[in-house]
Structure formats: structure tokens, C-alpha cells
């Protein structure tokens, strides 16, 4: 067992543990914090996959921005039902979806077992950010601009949606 595998196992365990805690925690804020753990471990996995820039973005956007936004969302709404919330175990749908998801994972396992790509990119970690920058501003410049417009529209839309209705009247 090499060090690489050990690191992967640790990170993967943390990620799945975070996800399971999120599903089973009783308080909303605990769920969110458990998920931040998952996000961080995924960032670690990105580093393992020679994607340092994406890892940084992951930490910034997910663990940072989106989590903070979700916390704001939680704080701005009331959660009286937290304590009383029935867990998914109690509902038939929970069982149905649970069984389906286990089956789904099983099918995926069978399929992934049969995959063999062979090739491995050797030089992704060399000047990773520069490579991304070159690619983004040469080959993918138009999608890049489009995505920025999407972001702009989404934020304006979010502001409009969240605005109090009294203001418009």
C-alpha cells in the first residue's frame, strides 16, 4: 500500500463520513458543517488528481461562498420543525429511495469495474494554473464570457426574487 492510496482512503472516508453525518444530523447547521467537511476532502482529492487550481476554487466557492450563503439562508428562515423532523427512515418513500440508491450504486459499481481507459496524462500538474488560463482565454473564451453572463443574470434574478414585495409597491 503506497502513500497515495492511503491518502485517498483517508480523504474518501472523510468525504463519505461527512455525507452520512449530513443525512443523519438532527440540526440543520450540523448538516451544513458536515458537508463542508466533505467539500474539503474533495478538494484534497482534486490535488491528488493534479488539479490544484480546481482544488483552490473548490475551497473558495463551496467551502467558502456557498456554505456561507446556505448559513445565511438557514439563519434567515425559522426551523421549528428541526427537532420534530421525522427521519427518512419512517417514510415508505425513504425506504423505496434508499433501496433504489443502493441498487444504483451497485449497478454503477458493476459498470465502473468494466471501464478501462489506459492512458494517463503525465503533465497536468506542471504549471496547472497557467495551462487552465491559456486554455480558458484561447480555446474557451466564448463559453467563459457566456458563463459570466449567466452568473450576472443569476445574481440579478436572485436579488429580484429575494427583494421584499413591499418595496415594489
Amino acid at each position: 500500500m503506497t502513500g497515495e492510496v492511503m491518502i485517498f482512503l483517508v480523504l474518501a472516508t472523510i468525504a463519505i463520513f461527512g455525507a452520512l453525518v449530513m443525512l443523519n444530523a438532527s440540526k440543520v447547521i450540523h448538516m451544513l458543517l458536515a458537508l463542508v467537511l466533505t467539500f474539503l476532502s474533495i478538494a484534497g482529492l482534486y490535488v491528488m488528481l493534479s488539479a490544484e487550481f480546481v482544488a483552490v476554487v473548490q475551497v473558495l466557492i463551496y467551502s467558502g461562498a456557498i456554505s456561507i450563503m446556505m448559513i445565511f439562508g438557514i439563519m434567515l428562515t425559522k426551523h421549528h420543525h428541526d427537532a420534530k423532523e421525522r427521519t427518512y427512515r419512517s417514510s415508505q418513500r425513504g425506504w423505496l429511495v434508499g433501496v433504489a440508491m443502493v441498487l444504483f450504486f451497485g449497478i454503477m459499481y458493476v459498470l465502473i469495474e468494466g471501464v478501462n481507459f489506459g492512458a494517463t496524462a503525465p503533465d497536468l500538474h506542471v504549471e496547472n494554473t497557467k495551462q487552465i488560463g491559456l486554455s480558458l482565454y484561447s480555446h474557451y473564451v466564448i463559453p467563459f464570457e457566456l458563463v459570466s453572463i449567466v452568473l450576472l443574470v443569476a445574481f440579478i434574478g436572485a436579488i429580484l426574487l429575494a427583494k421584499r414585495e413591499e418595496d415594489t409597491e
Binding site: 440543520v28 426551523h79 421525522r86 427518512y88 417514510s91 418513500r93 434508499g98 440508491m101 444504483f104 450504486f105
Partner: peptide, 15 residues
């Protein structure tokens, strides 16, 4: 699979 499970069973919209 875990995410989908949560999305389909959780009762809190934030979650």
C-alpha cells in the same frame, strides 16, 4: 447516490 437520497427524502428545503 447519497446526495440524491438526501434530495429525495429530506424535508428541509435548505438541506
Amino acid at each position: 447516490a447519497l446526495g440524491l437520497f438526501g434530495a429525495l427524502t429530506k424535508r428541509n428545503t435548505v438541506i
